[in-house]
Computed example of a mutant assay.
Amino acid sequence: MATLELRNVNKSYGSGLADTLKSIDLKIEAGEFLILVGPSGCGKSTLMNCIAGLESISNGAILVDDTDISGMSPKDRDIAMVFQSYALYPTMSVRDNIAFGLKMRKMAPAAIDEEVARVAKLLQIEHLLKRKPGQLSGGQQQRVAMGRALARRPKIYLFDEPLSNLDAKLRVEMRTEIKLMHQRLKTTTVYVTHDQIEAMTLGDKVAVMKEGVIQQFGTPQAIYNDPANLFVASFIGSPPMNFVPVQLQRRADQVWATLTSSSGSCELPLGQLPEGTEQRSLLLGIRPEQIQPTCAPGQAASLPAVVEVTEPTGPDTLVFVSVNDSKLCCRLAPDQAPNIGQSVELQIDASRVLLFDADSGERVRPKAQASLQSNVTHLKNR
């Protein structure tokens, strides 16, 4: 196991071109599983290649166990990588593919046989050792690619979207296998994906990237419950967070938001917000599962609405209504879901809603939260 730290890492492909990576600062402890997640083109695979040594960084430092490896060649970094395409040698058997790196390191034949047997048993591919990659399914090829990386016993594993070529069912199965493998081996791992479900289920820590910048770094639950900005809030979550334009009113020291549907309206208390907030263009964010039918229509923060669309998914039913001229998705249990055209009273928990500046995407926090956030940022910068 090894610690991995990135200090002010930048990557540019030439003067006059925008930086692909911009001031990347990350640190994960030994044995942690880090997910780099973001849309295509955000720089996550470039960052992975820089860690592996396949691409050089323009400035900054990459440290493994406090040793700067930025100038080392890939073979000297003691890092193993599993590629999206698996990159197996088609003319070699599964056994030879797994053993290839060990042979290059001039390991004794007996030790190679022992290591191949260990890895094959771990991944349950003993019966495939004599086959060629062309005789394997996508899931089997993925296991062989993982086996080749595991056989090296490196300090760090890198996975570059290893499940993107698999069908949905196999992707779920292999996701579980990767998580179980990490729990057994406890090896420091960095995993690149554009799939936020993989990010939420696999990672100890998640770094959400956009245009070469880390938007937020933390635990999956912290990022889900307390997104730093509009991009993170919209990218993490399935179905995604609802965003409804709102106008605020200030009464005494309390700020209120009004939600209006074709059937009525309700007011949500948003606490003490900074002065001038009510003059800004704002979006109110709330997760679909945080909206539930009320037992007693007409109670505070209860919004009457008419169901426009329903989408049964099996364990849940997604119910869509119009609020402030925007679609609002509610995630309900099937036995609670109303029918299309039916009137429903929806309970919105004011303590769970978030506010974002519609122009900048910045989070707008109540005064107490904003003060706490400022203190945390100050401590991080010390």
Rank of each mutant, 00 (worst) to 15 (best):
Y157G: 00
Q140S: 06
A168S: 12
D167L: 12
Y157K: 00
D160P: 10
R153D: 05
R143K: 13
N165S: 13
D167T: 13
L158Q: 05
P154Q: 10
A151Q: 12
A168T: 10
A168M: 15
L150H: 01
A168N: 14
G138V: 09
A149N: 04
E161P: 05
E161D: 13
A168V: 14
A151W: 07
V144W: 09
L163W: 06
K169F: 03
K155F: 01
L158K: 04
R152K: 15
Y157V: 02
E161S: 10
F159Q: 00
E161N: 08
E173N: 15
L163Q: 08
R148G: 01
R175T: 12
A151D: 07
Q141V: 09
A151G: 14
M146K: 05
V172H: 06
R171L: 04
R152A: 06
F159V: 10
V172R: 11
S164Y: 07
K155Y: 04
P154G: 04
A145K: 05
E173T: 13
L170D: 08
S164V: 11
G139A: 12
K169H: 09
V172Y: 13
L158Y: 03
L158N: 06
G147D: 07
K169M: 03
L163T: 08
G138Q: 07
L166W: 10
N165P: 12
R171D: 02
A168P: 15
R152Q: 13
M146W: 06
R148F: 02
S164P: 06
A145Q: 02
K169R: 14
L163D: 02
Q140M: 04
R148K: 11
L163C: 10
E161Y: 11
L150S: 05
E173R: 15
A168I: 12
Q142D: 06
V172K: 14
A151K: 13
I156V: 15
I156A: 06
P162G: 05
F159R: 02
P162V: 06
Q142H: 12
F159D: 02
E161Q: 14
Y157A: 00
L170W: 13
D167N: 15
A149R: 00
E173L: 13
R148P: 02
A149S: 12
L166Q: 12
L170G: 13
K169I: 12
D167Y: 14
V172I: 12
Y157L: 02
Q141M: 11
R148L: 01
G138L: 08
L158F: 09
G138R: 12
G147K: 02
D167K: 15
A145R: 03
R153F: 00
L170E: 00
R171E: 01
S164A: 14
R153V: 02
M146N: 04
E161G: 10
V144A: 11
G147W: 06
P162F: 03
D167R: 14
K155Q: 14
A149I: 01
L166A: 07
P162Y: 02
D160H: 03
V172Q: 11
S164M: 02
Q140K: 09
G147S: 03
R143I: 05
A145T: 03
R143D: 10
L163M: 06
E173W: 08
